[in-house]
């Protein structure tokens, strides 16, 4: 299973095995990683699963849709590699992915 490293805002790391086909958001929520709220459960309806994709991986997580970009536009502390983690599908190619969590989702 692809391993994904979630880095909380305080620096605490969680290395989680996430099945291919799940989203990066689901990997965090289903394993109690704090800092990704994902209130809407992945329907791209709430913008509370914001992450920063590690620079080295930014090109590999796919393009964000117009919908996602519009939602991100209203998130806090948006950076060039900001994504909504419910919109990143986990694949074998993402084994080793590192994402960092923002200070707050609200």
């Amino acid at each position: 299973m692809p391993k994904i490293t979630y880095v909380e805002h305080n620096g605490k790391e969680h290395v989680i095995d996430v099945a291919a086909g799940m989203t990066v958001m689901e990997g965090a929520v289903k394993h109690n990683v704090p800092g990704i709220d994902a209130d809407c459960g992945g329907a791209c309806a709430c913008a509370t699963c914001h992450v920063y994709v590690d620079e080295a991986w930014a090109g590999k997580t796919g393009e964000s849709s117009g919908m996602e970009q519009s939602m991100l536009d209203f998130a806090n502390d948006v950076q060039p590699t900001s994504r909504l983690s419910c919109q990143i599908k986990v694949t074998a190619e993402l084994d080793g992915l590192v994402v960092r969590l923002p200070q707050s989702q609200h």
Binding site: C44, S70, D73
Partner: peptide
């Protein structure tokens, strides 16, 4: 409807 900016901006 298919207008996320209006939703999030309106909410604020």
């Amino acid at each position: 409807v298919n207008s996320p900016a209006e939703f999030l901006g309106g909410k604020r």
